[in-house]
Amino acid sequence: MAENAKQLLSLIEIPILLVQGERVNFANAAAQALLGNHIEQQDIRIALRDPEALALIKSPEGGRAKVTGLSVRGSVWEMVCSPLADNMRLISLQDQSVQVSVARAHADFVANASHELRTPLTAILGYVETLSDPKAGEDAATRQRFLDIIKREATRMQSLVSDLMSLSRIEAVRHEVPSDEIEMVSLCREVIGERPHEVEIRFDANTDSAVVTGDHGQLAQVVRNLVDNAEKYGGSEKGVLVQLEASDRGWLTLSITDHGEGIAPEHLPRLTERFYRADTGRSRAAGGTGLGLAIVKHVVERHRGRFDISSRPGEGTTATIMLPQMKSG
């Protein structure tokens, strides 16, 4: 192929190969970065090692194929093969990994959400059907017990739908940087003041005022979710400690600590996944939806902050958020 044509292909940012017969005649910079600098003049069967892709290259009419694992394990690439003169093939590779991953995540999310909604709905329908039976419905104690269960399951569905809507709203604006001035000391006091007094919540701050750029509703939801978790799983004996610390480096650190059973190390990396629960039975019994920490993660990311959870079994758990403070003056 003419040198000027190869120079033109070199400018293309996606991987491009020219294959003549069974050998790579040319590879642009993107292809060499993907498959190795040695790719030119190499046997295409060694370069790709994908049966479907190799079959497509050999076919007279060319076409499209999916190739997996070219960059990293699990990556997905779309290969387009176009026949040229002199037994030459033009091969282009387009990375589809992100799209495939997003599609898979959406499918998993819908499946998990459907399952989470189906469980309480099945329980509600079952108890309603039982109450329709005169023998069960006429017994006051049985009727009240079943109605209490129906109320609990309906409340759980309501909480799940509410969290799903919150997550959807947060994702809709995740690329918009919030611009309101939020005073975090008063916000923390406001959220703590909303709580019932079943568990003692202590608040400590090293400053009287700490202002961040943010969304008041979302930041209040973050504090509410973390305090709620600490109350549910931390036990009531030692209470919950909420600490706010402003640093000279421009970061505001909010930490919520409980003194409960703690979380095993293998669960920590997955706690912010949607519907992931370290203890499924305990979480559902406590009314958890499995979305609280996912909401926290998305809000903190939108606010250009950092979120971390540390825990030791038997000693308790600390959830920590770092947010950039507004510069004074």
Results as ranks from 00 to 15, higher is better:
R152A: 06
R302D: 12
L125V: 13
V212C: 03
K135C: 08
Q41A: 13
A33L: 14
R195N: 02
I295L: 15
G260D: 02
L35T: 00
R169S: 15
S166C: 08
E171D: 14
A210H: 04
T280N: 09
M88H: 04
T119L: 06
R104T: 09
V199D: 04
L160P: 04
D180A: 13
R270C: 09
R202N: 09
E116S: 15
R195A: 06
H106Y: 05
R304M: 08
K232Y: 01
D148N: 13
T317K: 01
F26S: 05
A2N: 14
L164H: 09
V110E: 12
G63D: 10
L93A: 10
G260L: 01
G288P: 01
N37H: 14
S132Q: 12
P15I: 00
E266R: 10
R284D: 00
H115P: 02
C188G: 11
D95C: 05
L8W: 06
E245A: 08
R302M: 12
P313Q: 12
D95M: 07
E181H: 11
R274A: 14
F26T: 12
V72N: 14
Y276A: 11
A136N: 13
S71E: 10
R145Q: 13
T253F: 03
A111W: 08
V299E: 06
M322Q: 11
T289I: 01
I16F: 11
H259F: 15
D43M: 00
M1V: 12
V100Y: 10
D258H: 00
A136I: 10
H197C: 06
S59F: 02
R156H: 15
A55C: 07
R118I: 03
L226P: 04
V191A: 05
S236W: 00
L160G: 01
Q221A: 12
G62A: 09
T119G: 05
E190H: 08
E153N: 09
A210F: 00
L11F: 12
L121M: 15
I170M: 08
A33F: 13
P324C: 06
T130C: 05
W77I: 04
D308T: 07
T207K: 03
F26V: 04
T142C: 06
L254D: 06
V128K: 10
V299L: 04
D208H: 09
Y233Q: 07
V72K: 14
E190N: 07
A31Q: 00
V98N: 13
L35N: 05
I295S: 02
P313F: 00
Q158T: 13
V223H: 00
A230I: 04
D248N: 09
K297H: 11
G234M: 02
L9Y: 02
L84C: 08
D204C: 10
S114F: 02
A141W: 05
D308S: 09
E198N: 14
R302K: 08
A85H: 05
S310Y: 07
K66P: 00
E176A: 14
T280Y: 04
N225P: 03
A2P: 15
D248R: 15
G126S: 07
A31G: 11
